[in-house]
Simulated scan of single mutants.
Amino acid sequence: MERRGKAYRKAAEKVEADKIYNLHDALMLAVETNPAKFDASVEVHVRLGVDPRQADQNIRATVVLPHGTGKTVRVAVFAPEADAAKAKEAGADVAGEEAIVKLLDKGALDFDVLIATPAYMPKLGKYARQLGPKGLMPNPKSGTVAADVVKAVSEAKAGKVEYRVDKQAIIHLGIGKVSFGVDKLEENAKTFFASLQSQKPSSLKGGYVKSTAIATTMGPGIATENQVN
């Protein structure tokens, strides 16, 4: 704690160390204790009782947050020109085979989501090492390999986010900005928790969720009642 900044230490004093807060109170406290001078993200951190090395317990899914994340999502679409035109009408920032190849050849990954039609996926093989480490390689599980590019673009722009368990069996997900206010953050959080509940592996013998915490980008962690069984 001594190494933390003055603003962080002051914020942390408002969090009772041994208390587990209900979701609404945790979000209120997170907003109140945001030490940053900017509109920080509010994040959920969930430690699961799964083994990510097991294929059926390697949790990975998407969810459309009703109020989005507060971030501007730049969407690129790798598809035939006919689909590319529809994607642009739906709000894609860049679309089309030639346009995407030009960006990839330059190494200019100036987008947050890359959507590809199934037929065009093989053409991305040569860029896998470039896209994979940055989490930009289209994947059917994340809804970024899609025949219906209009729907995929619309969902990405509307607040569709992917979450996945890391090697430590923890899921980290931003559910909005401090400026959203508690009610919108709570709606987003509950939507995420409902999605996470639906991903519970049938083979899991122990508890699914071990602990849950809420925090802002630079704020203290707030232990929160588990919302998932």
Rank of each mutant, 00 (worst) to 15 (best):
V75N: 02
T117S: 13
T117Y: 06
K123H: 09
K123C: 06
M121D: 05
G107P: 09
G125A: 00
L114S: 05
A119Y: 00
A92T: 10
M121S: 00
D110S: 15
V75G: 04
T117M: 03
G107Q: 10
D112K: 11
A87I: 07
G125D: 00
E98F: 09
A79S: 15
D93R: 07
A90W: 03
L103T: 10
D93M: 07
R129M: 12
K126P: 06
D83I: 03
A82C: 02
K106S: 09
P80I: 03
L109Y: 12
A76D: 07
K102F: 14
L103E: 12
A76H: 08
A116V: 02
L103Q: 13
G125L: 02
A99F: 09
E97P: 10
L103F: 08
G107Y: 06
K88L: 15
L124Y: 03
D83Y: 00
G96P: 15
K106R: 14
Y120F: 15
Y127D: 03
R74D: 04
D93V: 05
P80K: 11
K86P: 05
K102Y: 14
A79G: 12
A76P: 07
P122F: 02
A92F: 04
Y120C: 10
M121L: 01
R74M: 02
A84I: 09
T117E: 07
A84C: 10
L104W: 03
R129W: 05
K86V: 12
L114G: 00
D105W: 11
T117V: 09
A92L: 02
E97K: 15
V101Y: 11
Y120R: 13
A76F: 11
A99G: 12
F111Q: 11
P118D: 06
V94R: 07
A82Y: 10
F78E: 01
G107W: 09
L114H: 03
V75F: 04
A76Q: 10
G96R: 14
A84W: 10
D105E: 15
A90M: 01
D112C: 09
K123Q: 14
V113Y: 01
E97M: 14
D83N: 15
V77R: 08
F78P: 06
A119C: 01
D112E: 09
M121Y: 00
L109D: 11
D110Q: 13
K106P: 02
K88N: 13
K126F: 02
I100R: 01
R129L: 13
A119Q: 12
F78W: 02
G125P: 03
E97V: 14
D93I: 05
A128T: 04
L104Y: 02
G91V: 01
I100A: 07
A87C: 06
A119F: 00
A76W: 04
V101M: 15
K123F: 10
V113C: 04
A79L: 08
D93N: 12
A92Q: 08
A119W: 03
Y120K: 15
D93S: 12
G125Y: 00
A92E: 04
Y127E: 00
A90L: 06
D110G: 11
K88H: 12
I100G: 08
D105T: 06
E97N: 15
Y120A: 13
A108L: 11
A90N: 01
V94Y: 03
D110V: 10
R129F: 11
V77Y: 02
E81S: 13
A95I: 13
P80W: 04
A108N: 11
G91C: 03
I100F: 01
E97S: 14
D110A: 14
I115L: 03
R129N: 15
